[in-house]
Amino acid sequence: MNDEAWGVPEAEGGRWAFGTGFADPLHGVDVAVPAGVDGAELARVCVALADDALVGAQRLAEWVTRAPEIEIELALANVGLDLLGQARLLYTRAGQVDGSGRGEDAFAFTRSAPEFRCLRLAELPRGDFAFTVLRLLVLSSARLAVLERLAGAADPVLAAVAERGVAEVAYHRLFAAEWVVRLGDGTAESRRRLRRAVVEVEPWLGEVVDDRVGAGLGVAAGAVRAACARDWRRVGEEAGVRLPLPAPWDRAPGGRAGVHTEHLPVLLAELGSVAREHPGAAW
């Protein structure tokens, strides 16, 4: 039996530089689907959480060369890199269990905006630094609550990605929370910017706190709202700015149903430009 048969397809010749020539983010992982797991529902959850991560990572990457300090630029890029890592694993898992056999690139680069399932807050334009850290606080509070519960999912691959993701997203939440406090407790200008950011995120909060993304895999209704209420109250007290918990969401179709803002197609056009120009390219 050769190495290929053992699942080691990484030909030395295909690697021309560090990190190149590796196609499968779930390489070496036991990807058998346990009996009783609904592949379509599992894929749906994986794609939604991957879309939040990919779109969020792209917005964070837009800060590179634009952040107020190089340390901040590195921090935002690294948070985005964590999310991108989660997205790659989740897309790969989705393609294994939805019967399509699609790889991560097919999910990331060949779908149109209505096929994306990300929360609309994630796709809004970059905004200023106050908006960026407030949005990161909101999205990571909610994502953490979902991942904490999916760490017990019946699918071992999703459970493992969620379990590892908890440590990463908890760090994102802390990074964002500390900056929200610093801005709220800072100068008149930083407070003004933070208050404006609160107004800007407010219309999109209902979809976040009443998100039912993991409902089919055992994430209890109300779990995300309770976690966000706890985190935002704590940060709001320190920052001296109230982060309002929205009224129950009316469930008008939103990002999870493929209804998006006009900003998502623009983001996707840039994100997929290289893949469209060089279809099937690998490096």
Binding site: D3, W6, V8, G28, P156, E163, R164
Partner: peptide, 11 residues
């Protein structure tokens, strides 16, 4: 042959 298995859990 050589086989590398990836173990995500426990993380």
């Amino acid at each position: 042959p050589v086989r590398v298995v990836t173990v995500w859990s426990p993380p």
